[in-house]
Design a protein around this nucleic acid. Structure first.
Lengths: 339, 339
DNA sequence: TTGTATGCGTTATCAA
DNA sequence: TTGATAACGCATACAA
């Protein structure tokens, strides 16, 4: 590669304005320390040259980047987008830029992304879920990069987190399902490995069932990727088993929408023949027909609180306070009693 | 802020391994140029110290970052996510990292993001649509950062692009609508200012109508943000007008899903009473009931081709070839004849 | 195969 | 209020 155009540097601006580089730097960062006339000269030079400071050089000299990294499993659906948006907006208020990376639910990719963001000088990191190789946590410690875990709140965890109790949320809706007479229950879940949210949700159902005296064999679990089509396929699978479930709980709304679509294609009435329950309460959940019964997760609030916690940690080295958000059942039209 | 932990540097590694910094650098970047025993010593030191190279310093010294920036209007829905994912995957194959930023459809924010990514050393940039302040294009030229425009293909444009003909795509579906007898037509569009895709789609409809001898007054246009709820509100508005449309074209599937939801809430039969047409053919379009008639945009292929074009431009300074992708009408269940 | 020395673009310290 | 200059962490041309 050749870089045939040379980006203007502080030097160039200084030369053009007839001042020193130090003055230009000050003029850009602390304008009040510079005389009005000098400011003008500098600003003109900056404009004429189309100067833009080099981030790398700046980071190196200033020893901080005002950048926070966020690593989420996927951008392919609205699952994380909503919370992330709020996270980003709040951080901007605090003067931080957010760098986003996604992992496609691969712990290997996540590790790469973590290293990449740290290398890029992220002053702090937002990660989803606790579960990952201890080696990574060690790495982050030696690098001195503060981390905040989100999308989960687990009192048993050693690290601070801003999120909700995945197990309790799922247990709550499972209790409703059971109280409506459902005995054959299924869960369409994300892959469980390295996904403590998904695992916790499964445990929530198992808890509810065992408390209701239901045998574990009454629960069928299908693990799949997140996606509408995947939800449809999983639903198909479940309906073909010897004892098809009368209630299908889904790890998220996207999967539930897929299940709902396939139910319609198979001419299975929802909720008369099968109940389908989502998780997250995305916009999507109200767009289907029948509208999806689901669990509301306050994503925006979660993103905002995570941003506040991380910003104050990075700026003032304040210890991160864990913060629990409450989920809420949203009853719409896809959950009904067993007939 | 205090950084109480000091990140290990090349120096530290070199000292620990008992070699020079140059050797460490080589060992990390060109392992074959280093003796086996030396490699071991260095790698051990790297591991023990948890060393990770400083991106800023690296970029400054190497004068390139292997980073491509992509700036999209929003991450809040799947509209851009699908194409971006493919873009990113392809770039990774070519050894590039992708940095993503979003603008919330604000041209001001877009300018900030462009400057930010350039400052961060992006070797190239992917931008959506042609229309923006000429000043920005000048800036990018003085910075020597190659730009590729996507999501549009416009033979009239001076800059190379990888995308599709928005006007033609919308015109094609509008022709179908008109041939089914629709005379009162509406468009629920994104805001038109600084959005040449939305503008082109509007023109496509206008073209089709004028060719069919329909007066412009038969077309109602509602501009709104992208979102399911926004689509619902816009549909509401349209149905309250003196001459409600019999066909509602939407700038994208997300708006169409919202319109569809509101139609159901208002007990308006689709497509018997009103036809609703989407754009993009997201997964979403098959999840609704009735399933959405829409225009397929090959997002993944578009992202991939954009990545290929941009990568070869950055690596080999090859001129960017514009590339046109074809859209396709997808007839499902929301478009019918006027009864 | 390895080491030395220099420069990358910026900030920040110290003088003037 | 300004200027000279020393870091910052790394890559690389050149020497050994």
């Amino acid at each position: 590669m050749k870089q045939n155009v040379n980006k203007p540097t502080l030097q160039d601006v200084a030369r053009k304005a007839g001042v020193s580089t130090a003055t230009v730097s000050r003029c850009l960062n602390f304008p009040d320390q510079v005389a009005g006339r000098t400011q003008e000269k500098v600003n003109n030079a900056v404009r004429e040259l189309g100067y833009s400071p080099d981030f790398g050089a700046k980071a190196m000299a200033a020893r901080r980047t005002n950048t926070i990294g966020a690593i989420i499993p996927t951008m392919a659906n609205a699952l994380f987008a909503r919370g992330l948006q709020a996270f980003q907006e709040e951080l901007q208020l605090h003067g931080f830029t957010t760098l986003v990376a996604s992992t496609s639910y691969s712990s290997e990719t996540e590790e790469q992304q973590i290293r990449s963001l740290v290398a890029r000088g992220a002053d702090g990191l937002l990660l989803i879920g606790h579960e990952r190789d201890p080696e990574i946590y060690r790495f982050l410690e030696t690098q001195g990069v503060p981390v905040l875990i989100s999308w989960v709140y687990d009192t048993a965890a050693t690290r601070p987190s801003v999120g909700f109790d995945n197990a309790a949320a799922m247990k709550e809706i499972a209790n409703e399902v059971i109280s409506l007479g459902h005995r054959q229950i299924a869960l369409i879940s994300a892959e469980l490995e390295f996904n403590d949210r998904a695992t916790a949700r499964l445990h929530g159902i198992q808890d509810a069932m065992s408390e209701a005296g239901l045998d574990a064999s009454n629960l069928q679990v299908v693990e799949t990727y997140y996606g509408i089509d995947e939800g449809a396929v999983a639903f198909d699978e479940l309906m073909k088993t010897a004892k098809p479930p009368t209630a299908v709980l889904c790890g998220n709304d996207v999967l539930a929408v897929g299940a709902l679509r396939r139910a319609r294609e198979l001419d299975i009435k929802v909720p008369e023949q099968v109940s389908i329950i989502g998780f997250d309460d995305l916009d999507l959940a109200r767009a289907t027909f029948p509208a999806l019964t689901t669990v509301l997760v306050p994503h925006r609030e979660m993103g905002k609180q995570a941003a506040i916690a991380l910003a104050s940690k990075v700026k003032d080295d304040a210890p991160i306070q864990s913060y629990e958000l409450k989920t809420k059942l949203v009853f719409r039209d896809t959950l009904g009693p067993v007939l």
